[in-house]
Design a protein around this nucleic acid. Structure first.
Lengths: 253, 253
DNA sequence: GAGTGGTCTAGACCACCGC
DNA sequence: CGGTGGTCTAGACCACTCT
């Protein structure tokens, strides 16, 4: 009876692997360093490649690793904090805007969008696509839904297409005075077009931030922004940077 | 050359599967209904079980399915919106509190926690464990770190242990007047203890909400709350319920 | 073309739940 | 106990990137 515990709950191999790798990342690797390839790592740990991949996938989900097909697996930098809660950073068109307009179209809204905007299913909306960059990397792709009622002066289409068109819509929208906003965050997986914009594969985990903007007593716009879950930490509130994790502090080489 | 496109980008099977299943969920299934088991489903679609599971995993990640070992796969209800942004709902001990105290200990803080609380590594902190319920289901597990300086009257330990002890700490903390707070959201995977509290397997995807509470010009407390990513939509701001998804509206049988 | 990660297979066994 | 989802294997081929 003096032995170690009988292990009534044997730990899955991939879970143990993840722990070992986490410790290795904390102590033996520096940011940007490339790991051995999956086949070598699997052999080194004496497991099947699929099992190793299960561990790597979790580590990537937690933002510790970055994997790129055809290239390799590298140690990821700490997640970047991106502000999503302060009005200044979000209300389209503000000076310190991290968003880049991509293009814009006019379409009939889906039922869900129409409901959130409190408009009829037949009233068309402007859809502005934007892209958010941080440190030269794309971190978010956004679809901004704007009822035509919010930009009444835009009846005649002056701007041809592309970014110019998007900017024209945003310029009109900016005339409204923002009265409040309302956000929700949930986990999703990247649609094919978002994935391309975010430089990820389709299905990659993303944080979907849905924001309603209120002006003139109505819902003036609806933003659905998908952020890369692996590289982003969304910050709300006054100051911008909490730097806390459950695990011990990390170090660089 | 009159044929369909040459498909220079063949869609992965699991991705196509996911699409098919999503449509089936939207049109042919109602919330709570149980799906055929994985072996049958795989056979029906003519794929290996592992491939089918890849599709199911994504659907579970998106909150469309719920899988329980030994039981089966069921159609998940829409995600519940949980408010995390309003001070009233979070500041410990408020009347309309959805949190249930579990227990409390005094420990030396990890380096990361000490840094966030701006205290020395040697000053011990109270750690209060709480659990958040919604609709009878556990949705979040929290660790609240409270420097002893924030609850000076608590030097003598009156309450024995467990929930009573936790409540005593919270009661003291509540004396402080909250001056502000500061949150960040990121994706993580559940640690073993959190997973048990959330009724999930270790490694399950969670949304980690890190909140700093400010009072008396200091960081008075630090909360690290892990929410079930599959069932929760975190809401910030005034009103509580945005109900938007990228996909068409869902229906019930 | 060589090397990487991404997809897929067919099978096995295990842990858990409810009967 | 039978049925479920969870883990694991050993192999194959594909898509991509870089040189």
């Amino acid at each position: 009876m003096g032995t170690t515990q009988l292990e009534s709950v044997p730990e899955p191999k991939y879970w143990h692997l993840k722990t070992v790798l986490t410790e290795a990342l904390d102590s033996e690797f520096s940011v940007g360093e490339i790991l051995p390839n999956e086949r070598d790592l699997a052999a080194r740990f004496g497991v099947a490649r699929a099992t190793l991949r299960q561990a790597l996938e979790q580590l990537e989900l937690e933002g510790r690793l970055q994997r790129r097909r055809g290239v390799g697996t590298t140690v990821a930098p700490p997640r970047v904090g991106v502000a999503v809660g302060t009005e200044q950073h979000i209300w389209p068109g503000t000076a310190t805007d991290a968003w880049q307009p991509v293009d814009s179209t006019v379409e009939a809204p889906s039922a869900a969008v129409a409901a959130a905007l409190e408009i009829g299913h037949d009233q068309s909306v402007h859809i502005v696509r934007r892209s958010r960059m941080t440190h030269g990397q794309p971190v978010a792709a956004e679809l901004l839904y704007i009822p035509e009622a919010s930009v009444p002066e835009l009846s005649a289409i002056d701007a041809p297409s592309g970014p110019a068109r998007a900017r024209a819509v945003l310029r009109e929208l900016q005339r409204l005075e923002l009265e409040g906003q309302d956000s929700a965050v949930e986990l999703g997986s990247a649609r094919a077009d978002d994935a391309k914009q975010l430089d990820r594969l389709p299905g990659a985990p993303v944080l979907v931030v849905t924001t309603r903007f209120f002006a003139e007593g109505r819902t003036a716009a609806l933003s659905v922004a998908t952020y890369r879950a692996d590289t982003c930490r969304l910050t709300f509130g006054d100051s911008g940077g909490v730097e806390i994790h459950q695990d011990p502090e990390r170090r660089a080489s």
